[in-house]
Design a protein around this nucleic acid. Structure first.
Lengths: 202, 202
DNA sequence: GCCACAATAGCACGACCGTTCGTTTTTGTC
DNA sequence: GACAAAAACGAACGGTCGTGCTATTGTGGC
């Protein structure tokens, strides 16, 4: 009986696309059902509640992100190359055609910041995991002596994330076609200072 | 007949608070009416449409922002002090008690990025004005010889904005009490590199 | 105190929301 | 092909949404 999980995937795929445009709150059972050609109640039965749907959409998004950005980077050499791969991989992420509204986590970050509940809690966990992935990659670069050994890797991750956020903002809100270029500039400055290690010391 | 504009202000004040938590889309006529003690239709009559309400909330927010952040900075000395004043002023902005959900423009940036229409158009104009205010302040610092003369002031504004976005993200989503400290670190690095001017050249 | 008019209330509308329930169709197994 | 389980459907629920109307209340100027 694999039919069920097939439609489930179809639903989640569509839901990820929609939530990338309208946010997790923009998801509606009825609208989603129309999009995938199901009845409202038929779709609803797969999840049991809207909150459960949101949680599953989030989980599916994370899985897709790991597949698209994290795993490829983990396949590259430890140290600076891996840090660069994470960055370059991310730049392509909000431009996938199956994410017509850009990175679904960016919208979620601002949607959920004042909405307590399980969805927010889970999301914060996911985000922390991502940030510690970035920090760990920077720590690897320190160990490989690509970055200065005084580097504060948490601060590195902080500024790394800052660049991604501004990139998304300029790309998707302002429709600035120099967004990638600007992001790469900022990133190179971060790398340069991280090598010099005078950067970001405590 | 000043009664009308009094209630208008009350409504807008409440609407700004709500939209800082739930976003511009989270505003609802009925909910807002309940909050300020009006009937739904009574409140509605002040604006004529929800879109008009959103536009007015946006405008009121911008006015408040200018009063709280931009004007004080323009009162300081041209050059690096003014750049620093803009930055420091902004750090306090999302912590005002009349903005319980943080900076209303941050949420709006991600809400509106895929919703074409007058609200988005107006918002993009406001954001561009802010970014050019930042760029102009950096240009002032170049002229005052506080920053290196090769500095790309647009890139400076880009990275300035990046820090603000990450600050808001760490502060409001992750509830990181080191957010301010981290932001200041990142800012000092930006300033330092802008003085060195090797920074962000084209 | 009257009058014009602004401000607010009350009510109804169609649409959509998440959710429940009972029924029907489809599916895989024997 | 029979049968049980899974999947999808259709209708209805109480709500809330934005938006129209018409009526009522309140206010300022004369």
């Amino acid at each position: 009986m694999a039919k069920g999980s097939d439609t489930r995937n179809t639903i989640l795929e569509q839901a990820m696309a929609t939530s990338s445009r309208l946010g997790l709150d923009g998801l509606s059972i009825g609208g989603l059902a129309r999009d995938v050609g199901l009845s409202k109640s038929g779709l609803f039965a797969h999840f049991g509640s809207k909150e459960e749907l949101q949680l599953e959409v989030l989980a599916a998004g994370v899985e897709k992100f790991i597949e698209a950005v994290v795993k490829p980077a983990l396949g590259t050499a430890r140290g600076e190359p891996r840090v660069r791969a994470l960055f370059a991989g991310w730049l392509g992420w909000p431009e996938r055609e199956d994410l017509p509204g850009g990175c679904p986590f960016m919208s979620a970050a601002y949607e959920l910041d004042d909405r307590p509940g399980p969805v927010r809690d889970q999301f914060v966990i996911y985000q922390s995991q991502w940030l510690s992935t970035v920090a760990r990659s920077a720590a690897g670069a320190v160990e490989e002596k690509h970055f200065g050994k005084g580097l504060d890797v948490e601060q590195f991750a902080w500024e790394f994330q800052a660049i991604l956020m501004a990139y998304h903002y300029y790309l998707r809100l302002l429709r600035d076609d120099q967004a990638r270029e600007r992001a790469e500039h900022a990133f190179e400055r971060l790398i340069r200072d991280s090598k010099a290690q005078a950067t970001v010391s405590s």
